[in-house]
Nucleic acid binder design. Structure first.
Lengths: 224, 224
DNA sequence: AGCCATTTTTAAGGAATTTATAAGGAAGAG
DNA sequence: CTCTTCCTTATAAATTCCTTAAAAATGGCT
């Protein structure tokens, strides 16, 4: 289920856009104040819809603030119809520029077209609990910093995140990650978990829960 | 240099569009009769611009004929402003729908935005981490000097840079660069990496990171 | 509440694995 | 033949993984 963020100071517009996009089965988060949008949080979304004219920080400023951090499509949604503004918007790295008044049908068509192209390209990153895993680069990124996981630590995290919310015993984890099932795996896994938690905690995160008597699980992001 | 195909029965429009896109340094091919467009030939292009209303076969028909064959962005360029047509266009797999009359600035901005998203770089030079690779001349240049890479060293670098940010095991690297997979490749690759790093270090650069337990990767510039 | 058994967490050290470096020889080009 | 390039081998250095053992926490029990 694609996850979208819409930023607009106009509540009526937000409601309208949300209703339109939820018709297509998307999960829509909204924000009325662009200054509260954190670049590091944006990688949680598959697509961003930004209003241009907003009181404190306008959409262009917001876009330039976050474009370096996120790779997903950014669409402007605006009443500014002048060519100069449109060119400026695309120049900031935007992927579309939808002029108001727009029809709901057009909005949905354009959003879906951008999402469709994203899906076509092999996605090799996944985010959970504020951590983004790049399976090609083999790195985990929390906010600004990349977490210095070792190979084994990264593998355990990746497996937990891929099955977020599911509990694994230490033995299951060892087997899933390292293949075979040795003797003292449980202690080894416990040691890894300790180190992983320490590194996550340095980034202010603690997404790994202990299920007493059973094992560990990565807390799944709540689906609002 | 990106290669574009524009299909329109209106010669004036074709000239206008061609002039606009060539300003951005693109190579523009044109076609006036959509029926002569062969799906198999479309692979040559990085982006297609289709007029909707054409006498024999309209743009929608053409799009549905070729969409399965080509993955590149398809943009409609049309006077049909109705929502239904727009939705139909996107439904056929199009990536944008530009309504006439459009400004040259908007056309250029949209075309460039779509090209920017394309992974395949038609250019034969690329820069990463302060090193510029000329894939035609097979030379790497850092600042003033050309780096004295051997053929194998250059090949490894080029592959790493082409997939900057992605980790490769020594075996993967050997196979990707030299074709087959022999016995002691890993040591050979390690040796190459050592020499490459020495030569890069002479220029004050060290873009190759080792991911312990996995392999090597070229650090990706975080510039868009 | 207090105590005990079990489980988890933490800590530290050594074993094992992986990478870096260096030197020598085989193969091919000029 | 000479030189460069490439690969192999050997050794040193670095990092990670696992084991062991003790401390802390949890849940159940009286």
């Amino acid at each position: 289920m694609p996850k979208l963020l819409v930023v607009d100071d106009d509540l009526d517009m937000l409601a309208l856009v949300r209703a339109a996009l939820e018709k297509d089965g998307h999960q829509v988060d909204t924000e009325t104040d662009s200054t509260t949008v954190q670049p590091a949080r944006c990688h949680l979304y598959d697509l961003l819809l930004l209003d241009v004219m907003m009181p404190v920080e306008d959409g262009f400023s917001l876009c330039s603030r976050i474009r370096a951090e996120v790779d997903c499509p950014i669409l402007f949604l605006t009443a500014k119809a002048e060519d100069a503004a449109l060119v400026q918007g695309f120049g900031l790295g935007a992927d579309d520029y939808i002029k108001k008044p727009f029809s709901i049908a057009e909005l949905r068509a354009r959003v879906n077209a951008h999402l469709r192209r994203e899906v076509r390209q092999p996605t090799h990153t996944l985010s959970q609990g504020g951590v983004r895993f790049d399976m090609q680069a083999k790195v985990a990124i929390a906010g600004e910093h990349t977490l210095p996981f070792t190979k084994g630590e990264y593998a355990i995290c990746e497996h937990l995140v891929l099955h977020a919310g599911q509990v694994f015993t230490k033995e299951q984890l060892y087997e899933a990650v390292f293949g075979f099932d040795a003797e003292g795996d449980s202690s080894a896994v416990a040691e890894h978990i300790k180190n992983i938690r320490a590194k996550l905690k340095a980034g202010g995160l603690s997404p790994i829960e202990t299920v007493w008597g059973v094992g560990y699980k990565w807390r799944k992001d709540s689906v609002r």
